[in-house]
């Protein structure tokens, strides 16, 4: 196997980006207006994710009723065709996926004003059509967009991103080739603050490099927040224009 040059001496990465550049980030909301109360379609590099928010709605069973706040439920469906090679198993009950779901629920539990919707259920369904590294961050972005589309009250945006560390250089928004070749950090940043709602490190990173990696990550997450904000505002303008022309 030929060794890939993850980061060339000229400062270029495999896909031609510089160390501090994001991947192509395109999103749209209200993509499935008939299937859900809020929806989004997100492309972050080659990650393609559909997020559907259903609710607040009547809980399906009595045991789910919480008289004080809404119940948040997130299910992640990683399709079998989401990677280059078709996976043999559906990923439904894998521990890794269960862990992702739990982490997502716990992240949004603190950011959605669940106390405004007592006795209800907010169901979030995620379909990962294609994955190319840094999937956890993209999931966060997709959910944020879909929740806003559903009109569910939140304190702020949550934007997610992964940062890799190649030797001593942090690389922003890693793709899957980079992700397998080095260790990376996934962050979930609240709005324009420096507060982290989610922080996951799964491989070894020198303790003394953590701070720079986090700093780059937070800057990248703020940029993603702006991109999401832009999309939401342009979508809203379109809708307002449509409504007023009628």
């Amino acid at each position: 196997m030929s060794r890939l040059e993850i980061y060339s001496p000229e400062g270029l990465r495999l896909d031609g980006r510089r160390w501090n550049e994001l991947r192509r980030f395109e999103s749209s909301i209200n993509t499935h207006p008939h299937a859900s109360d809020g929806s989004s379609y997100l492309e972050q590099g080659n990650n393609k994710i559909i997020t559907l928010v259903k609710g607040p709605k009547e809980p399906t069973s009595r045991s789910q009723v919480d008289t004080n706040k809404a119940l948040l439920r997130i299910s992640v469906n990683i399709t079998q065709f989401s990677k280059f090679e078709r996976s043999k198993s559906s990923h439904r009950n894998e521990r890794r996926v269960l862990e992702m779901q739990t982490a997502l629920v716990r992240t949004f539990e603190k950011n959605v004003m669940l106390n405004l919707y007592p006795r209800t259920l907010i169901d979030i369904e995620i379909h990962v059509l294609q994955q190319d590294g840094g999937i956890m961050g993209s999931l966060l972005n997709g959910i944020t967009l879909a929740l806003i589309d559903a009109g569910i009250a939140m304190y702020d945006y949550i934007s997610g991103i992964s940062v890799g560390l190649y030797d001593t250089t942090p690389l922003l928004d890693v793709n899957s080739l980079e992700e397998t070749a080095m260790s990376s950090v996934t962050l979930g940043v609240v709005g324009k603050s420096e507060k982290l709602s989610l922080l996951l490190v799964e491989d070894k990173i020198p303790l003394d490099r953590m701070e720079t990696v986090l700093a780059i990550g937070i800057a990248g997450a703020h940029r993603i927040r702006d991109l999401m904000d832009e999309e939401l505002r342009s979508h809203a303008e379109k809708r307002v224009a449509n409504a007023s022309s009628r």
């Binding site: 507060k195 982290l196 996951l200 020198p206 986090l214």
Partner: peptide, 15 residues
């Protein structure tokens, strides 16, 4: 070396 960090949601904390 940081081997693993897990802050799976919960209270947002300053970096």
């Amino acid at each position: 070396e940081v081997v693993q960090v897990s802050k799976a949601g919960g209270l947002p904390m300053d970096a």
